[in-house]
Amino acid sequence: MRESAAERHDRLLELVRRHGTARVSDLAGLLGVSPVTARRDVEVLAGKGLLDRVHGSVSWPAAQPAGRQEPPDALVLGLLAPSATYYFAEVIRGAHEAAARAGARLILRISDYRPEEDHARVEGLLAAGAQGLLVAPGWRRPQDPAEHGQWIAGLPVPAVLLERQPGPGTPADALDRVCSDHRHGVLLAVRHLVGLGHGAPVLVARADSPTALSVRAGYAAALGALGLSAPRGAIDSVPAELDPEGFEAAVGALREAVTAGATAALVHNDVDAIQIVQRLAELGVRVPEDLAVVAYDDEVAALADTPLTAVAPPKREVGRHAAELLVERLNEGFGEAARRHLTLLPRLRVRASCGAPSGVRPTEVGVPGPGRGGAPHTLA
């Protein structure tokens, strides 16, 4: 199976983290890619603040701003993430910024969406001195929390879950957590499309991550809340580079839905949405003239030929609030303080793929009004 860019980025980050500093030419050899590809990967990761780049070499970024030294007794926060690219790059950045503001050091380990390795990665963070943990397990399937998440509730240090919701009543459900409200994000998208005169959109979505599963659940909830019926069953989406036949089947199913009268689609995620729109154009289906499209994630949606309207989960804010909560727990003591479940609301960024006039600046739907400042709402 061909390695994706995200998987290669994670390997590159792990190599730099392990060595501290490395030449880009050496990284190319270790990764088995051309120097041009290695330089391009480094530029992407440095642009996201995940690496420091100087004169042909890269290094792991300091946890503190330049010129600022960590005190000997600085808090050490450990972060387990399933990836350091795409969605989780912004989560990590938010946590890193909050840790730096608090005078804490953030150390990172990547599970590469292998939930069976999560526990060992966390043990590595604890061995490296982590006094508290930010944990985003690499769950992909509905059964993963039960099969690979029992250890989380028994951690010996304070822990905050990131973008993960264990089953109700499970021990891990009693931990602090900070999540995006993906159901709300889907509702924003569906309500926007209906407000433009479309019927219920076709859902094109993956089923290989907690976000994907939440988007699917949110779609059913949104249709129920708005009194709508799905025009057809959800179309299973797959990465084009990993499963070309599956990708073509998804595009074909969506084209058939358009032929049958569908005029709108919600696609998770951005990369899939861009590639699907490109392929539809080759088959004679135009966006937005024949099909209005909303993507979910808003990582690269704005860069499509026809900029895609997209739901934008508050990824950076998730990382920031989680790190701030963990620092608060460490400063106050583990004790019996009431645990918190913070849910942050996504926004809808409206662009041309839904028929916005050319030259009009993108707008946001779901932006908090004056005086509310984007604060999360707290769930019981």
Rank of each mutant, 00 (worst) to 15 (best):
residue 270 D to E: 08
residue 32 G to Y: 12
residue 6 A to N: 06
residue 65 P to I: 13
residue 104 A to G: 08
residue 8 R to Y: 03
residue 125 L to C: 09
residue 225 A to Y: 07
residue 353 S to F: 10
residue 39 R to H: 14
residue 10 D to E: 07
residue 70 E to C: 13
residue 307 P to R: 05
residue 122 V to K: 00
residue 303 L to V: 09
residue 245 E to M: 06
residue 213 L to F: 11
residue 46 A to K: 02
residue 192 H to T: 04
residue 162 L to N: 00
residue 376 P to I: 10
residue 252 G to S: 09
residue 194 V to C: 06
residue 184 H to Q: 14
residue 352 A to D: 04
residue 251 V to R: 05
residue 28 A to G: 11
residue 93 R to L: 08
residue 340 R to A: 14
residue 285 V to G: 00
residue 142 P to E: 04
residue 87 Y to A: 11
residue 10 D to M: 07
residue 303 L to I: 09
residue 346 P to Y: 07
residue 104 A to S: 13
residue 361 R to H: 12
residue 202 V to T: 02
residue 133 L to A: 06
residue 20 G to F: 10
residue 376 P to T: 10
residue 379 L to G: 06
residue 374 G to P: 02
residue 302 A to G: 11
residue 161 L to C: 06
residue 326 L to E: 03
residue 41 D to W: 01
residue 188 L to Q: 07
residue 151 W to D: 02
residue 372 R to P: 02
residue 231 P to H: 02
residue 148 H to Q: 11
residue 39 R to P: 00
residue 261 G to A: 11
residue 183 R to C: 09
residue 102 A to R: 06
residue 50 L to G: 02
residue 62 A to T: 10
residue 133 L to R: 04
residue 44 V to A: 09
residue 130 A to C: 10
residue 33 V to G: 08
residue 107 I to P: 00
residue 134 L to G: 08
residue 273 A to Q: 06
residue 287 V to N: 00
residue 5 A to M: 13
residue 12 L to Y: 08
residue 364 E to Y: 14
residue 133 L to Y: 03
residue 258 V to S: 03
residue 70 E to N: 07
residue 307 P to S: 09
residue 266 L to M: 05
residue 89 A to G: 06
residue 44 V to C: 00
residue 39 R to N: 12
residue 168 P to L: 04
residue 285 V to N: 05
residue 84 A to F: 03
residue 264 A to M: 01
residue 94 G to W: 02
residue 48 K to A: 15
residue 216 R to T: 13
residue 203 L to G: 01
residue 322 A to W: 01
residue 305 D to C: 03
residue 227 G to Y: 05
residue 265 A to Y: 08
residue 111 S to I: 07
residue 167 G to E: 15
residue 347 R to H: 11
residue 53 R to H: 13
residue 67 G to V: 14
residue 124 G to T: 08
residue 335 G to F: 12
residue 76 V to Q: 05
residue 348 L to H: 04
residue 339 R to W: 07
residue 321 H to F: 15
residue 164 R to M: 11
residue 232 R to N: 10
residue 118 D to M: 01
residue 137 P to T: 12
residue 244 P to M: 05
residue 236 D to M: 12
residue 263 T to A: 13
